[in-house]
Design a protein around this nucleic acid. Sequence first.
DNA 1: TATGAATGAGCATTCATTCAT
DNA 2: CATGAATGAATGCTCATTCAT
Lengths: 197, 197, 197, 197
Amino acid sequence: MPKKIDHEARKQEILQAALKVFAREGYRNSNLSLIAAECSLSRPTIYQYFTDKEEIYHYAVKLVTGRMFSKYVSYVWRDPSGEVDKLIRICEDIIDTADANNIEISNLVGVMIQVKHEGRDFEGMIMHRTAKLSILFKRLIRSGMANGVVKSCDVDKVAEQLMVLLEGACLRIAFFKKYDTTQDKDIIRTFLISFKK
Amino acid sequence: MPKKIDHEARKQEILQAALKVFAREGYRNSNLSLIAAECSLSRPTIYQYFTDKEEIYHYAVKLVTGRMFSKYVSYVWRDPSGEVDKLIRICEDIIDTADANNIEISNLVGVMIQVKHEGRDFEGMIMHRTAKLSILFKRLIRSGMANGVVKSCDVDKVAEQLMVLLEGACLRIAFFKKYDTTQDKDIIRTFLISFKK
Amino acid sequence: MPKKIDHEARKQEILQAALKVFAREGYRNSNLSLIAAECSLSRPTIYQYFTDKEEIYHYAVKLVTGRMFSKYVSYVWRDPSGEVDKLIRICEDIIDTADANNIEISNLVGVMIQVKHEGRDFEGMIMHRTAKLSILFKRLIRSGMANGVVKSCDVDKVAEQLMVLLEGACLRIAFFKKYDTTQDKDIIRTFLISFKK
Amino acid sequence: MPKKIDHEARKQEILQAALKVFAREGYRNSNLSLIAAECSLSRPTIYQYFTDKEEIYHYAVKLVTGRMFSKYVSYVWRDPSGEVDKLIRICEDIIDTADANNIEISNLVGVMIQVKHEGRDFEGMIMHRTAKLSILFKRLIRSGMANGVVKSCDVDKVAEQLMVLLEGACLRIAFFKKYDTTQDKDIIRTFLISFKK
DNA sequence: TATGAATGAGCATTCATTCAT
DNA sequence: CATGAATGAATGCTCATTCAT
C-alpha cells in the first residue's frame, strides 16, 4: 500500500506557510515559489492540494478570520460577571488578539482590499464570521436588560455600533505600524458603560 | 527660446493618470503601461519624471491624502455655529467625502498596507496630514470650553479619540464594498454631544 | 492460484481508453491523466504496460488502422454480385466507415503527421494494412477479367489508382469538419465503371 | 528619432522562422523559444508582433496556403494552349509544388488537423483560398465548352471533383514520407481527358 | 501488482526597465 | 526631450515520469 497522507493536514501546513510568507514578504511580493519553499515542497506539489494560487489566498484569509472571531462564542458563558463587563472583556480581548497578530491582520486587510476590485466573495466570508459575533453581542445585551443591569435601548443599533467600533480598531491596527490601542479600548468602554443601569 | 516643459505640472499629470488607473483597474492590476497610456505618454518617458514605479505610487498616495484633509483648516472659521456643531459638521463632511471617493480611498489604503512591509515613510506622511486635523479639533474644543459650550475635559484625549473614530470610519469605507455610514456618524455625534454643556 | 491479470487484455483496454480520449479531447489536448482516468487506472500503472506515452500513441494508431481495413478481406467472398459492383461496394463501405468514424480517423491522421517527423515506422504499419486491401482489389480485378466482365487493363496500376482515390477520400474526411462524400463516391464509381466491359 | 522598424516585415520574418521551426521540429514540438531563437529575437519581443502563440500559428498557416494557390489565377491567361491542357498543366503544377514543399504542407495539414477540435476558423481560411482555384477551374471549363473543345457537362460538378482529386493528392503528399505522385497525375489527366471533345 | 505522492523540466505570458536613435 | 525596440527576470501552471509503499 502506498504512503497515505492526510490531505487536510497538508493543506493546513501549506496555508500556514502561506501566511508566514505573507507576513514576511507582504502579500504583493508573495508567490507560489516562496510558499512552496516555506513548506519544503516543490511548486507543482502544491497544485495537488489547491487548484490555483487564488484558492490558497482564499483559504488563508478564511483561516485568519476563523481564528480571530471563533473562540468567544463558547467561552463567554462560563464568565460569571455582569453582561456589560462581559462585553467589555470580549471587545478588549479581540483588540488584544488583533494587536498581537498585527502582521497577520494587516495582510488579511491587504488581501481584502486588493480583492475588492475583483468582485470575489471574501467579504461575505468575513461577514459570516462577524455576524456570529454580532449575535453574541445582542444576546448579551438582551440578557443584561432582562437582568436589569443594562438600560433599555435599541439592541440592534447598539450591537451594530459596537461592531463598528471594533472593526475600526482592528482596521487601524492593520493599518498603522505601531499602534496604541488605549484610546480604542477607552472609547468602547465608555460607550458600553453608558448603557449600564 | 527652446520649448520648456513644466516638470512639476507633467508630474502631476502622471500622478492623476496613475490615480485614474488605480481606480479603474485596481491597484493590483495596475502597471506602467496603463499609466503611460492614460496620460498619452510612452512608458520610457515616465522614467524622466519618476525613478521607478514605486515612486509613482508614493506620490500618488501623497496626492490623495493631501486632497482629503486639507480643505477643513481654512473653511471652518467662516462657519458661525457653535464649536460642537462645527466639529460634527466637519466629521460628517470628512466621512461623506471619503464615502464619495470610496474607490480612491480603498486604493490608498491598499497601497499603504502594501508598503507597510517595505518600511517606507508613507505613514509619517499621513500622520503629518492628520496631525493638522487633530490640531484643528483641539483648537475648536478649547475654543468651545472658553465659550462655555463644551464641558471641561482632557482636550488631547478627546481630540485623539475623535481622530480614532474618524479613521475607523474611513477605513471601513475603504474596506467594505457597500458601506452605510449612518452608524459612524451617529457614534461620532453621540460622542461629541456628550461633551456639550 | 494467484490472481493473474491478462496483460494483453489490459493493454487493449488502455488503448481503447486512449482512443476514446483522443476522440473526446483531441489528440493535442490528450494526456496520460485523462487516459488513466478513462480506464480507471492510476497514471503510474499504465507504465507497467507501456514504456512511455509515445508507445501508447503508437499502438493506438495500429489498433485503428487494423480495425479500418481488416474486415473486407473476409466478407467480400460471400457477395454474389459482379466484381466491379463488389469493388464499388467495398470502396463505398470504406468511405462510409471512415465518415462514420470521422473523429477517430482525424486523430489517426493527426498522430501520423506528427510522427512523420520523428522518423518512426508507423507508415510501414499502415502500408502493411493497406497492402492487404490492394491485394484484394487486384484479385477482384483479375477475377473480373477472367469472368469477362472487366476490360483488359494494367491490374497493378488500376488497383494502385483505386487505393489512391480511397486514401484521398479518407484523408479529406479526416481533414474537413463536415465533409460530403458524394463526389468521392461518384469519382470512384465512374472510375470503376469505365473498366466494365 | 528612435529606430523605426517595419512591423509587417518583421512579422513576416517571424512567420518564416516559425515555418522553419515547424519543418525542423514538427508542429507538436515547436514552441516560442525555438521560434524566437530561429529569428534571433528574445521570446518577449515576439509578443510585440503577435498577441499570442496561436496567432503565430494562424498566420503561418495563412502564409503557406497563400503561397500554394495564389499564382495560378494570374499566369494561366498567358498560356495559349487549349483549356483541358491548361487544366492538366495547372493541376500537375500544383501537385509538383506541393511535392516540392512536402514538409511545409505536411506541417500545414498537421496544424489543421490539430485545430479541427478547437473549432477555430482556419478551415474557412483554406476554403477561401481554394474557392478561388475552383472558380478558375469553372471559368476554364466554361471557356472550353464555348470554344467547342470540352464536352457539355455539369461544370460545377466537374470542377468540384477536380478539386477533390487535387486535395486528395496534396493530402497524400503531406501524409506519406516518400510519395510518388505519378498515379495522382495520371488519374487527373485521365479524368480531364475524358471531357475532351 | 498497484498507486498516492512528489517533482524536474518546460511553456506561455507579463512587465519593469534599459538603450539607441 | 521623447520613444520605439528589446529583453531579463519572474510567475503561474502543466505533465510525463519516478519512487516508496
